[in-house]
């Protein structure tokens, strides 16, 4: 057998393998059909359809159905991605935090990519008592800091949740704001202040 025919044989095997993968994915997990059915629009590129490991697992399972071994792996892996603030300071400005929590734009094809992304916290959570237009997909965060106090453990837990929610609850519905670079470090600190600052509207 010559070297080139090995190459051809190898290519044919790879092709067969990839066809089989596509067929398998198509049945329960439709990655190939997704690729065929979308087109890039402005900053929403086709790469966004490709799942990372957590997304793939959490498509197949929910928090309740995820096998314990997988859950542990997701949690461990997610935890290792969490970067604490470089200067060790967790709390920024709660007023800026409130604005980030109110802002629902960012990363949609229709959004201005030169503007900072929002956190859109009120879409899912109750925060300040004065804001009645809050969603209920996530738990109420009213009096978050008042109930917990600014202990190192409470600050670290909240930072972890904001940075990569999968480190706390595998297959959580909450976006991984730090890990996915939706919000930058300063924005995360401002949200932390919204949650913990005694003068924040959340704690009134």
């Amino acid at each position: 057998m010559t070297v080139s025919s090995v190459g051809v044989l190898l290519a044919a095997t790879l092709l067969a393998a990839s066809l089989q993968t596509v067929a398998e994915e198509d049945a329960p997990y439709p990655a190939a059909a997704m690729q065929r059915s979308f087109e890039a629009k402005k900053q929403a590129g086709m790469d966004r359809l490709t799942q990372d490991e957590v997304q793939a697992l959490c498509t197949r399972y929910t928090t309740a159905t995820l096998p314990p071994a997988e859950a542990e792996r997701v949690q461990k892996q997610s935890l290792s991605s969490v970067k604490p603030p470089a200067d060790g300071q967790y709390l920024g400005d709660f007023k800026r935090g409130e604005k980030i929590a109110q802002t629902g734009t960012g990363l949609q094809s229709s959004d201005d990519p030169t503007k900072p992304n929002g956190g859109n916290c009120y879409a899912c959570h109750q925060l300040a008592a004065s804001e009645l237009a809050y969603g209920t997909l996530g738990p109420s965060l009213q009096h978050y800091g008042k109930l917990r106090g600014q202990t190192p453990a409470a600050l670290e837990a909240a930072w972890r949740k904001l940075y990569n929610s999968q480190a706390d609850v595998p297959c959580s519905n909450m976006p991984r704001f730090g890990h996915q670079k939706i919000l930058d470090e300063q924005q995360l600190k401002d949200l932390m202040a919204l949650l913990f600052d005694p003068n924040s509207p959340v704690n009134q």
Partner: peptide, 11 residues
């Protein structure tokens, strides 16, 4: 299947 397909920056 698509109904449960998590993807994009917000998962």
């Amino acid at each position: 299947a698509v109904f449960r397909y998590r993807a994009g920056p917000h998962d």
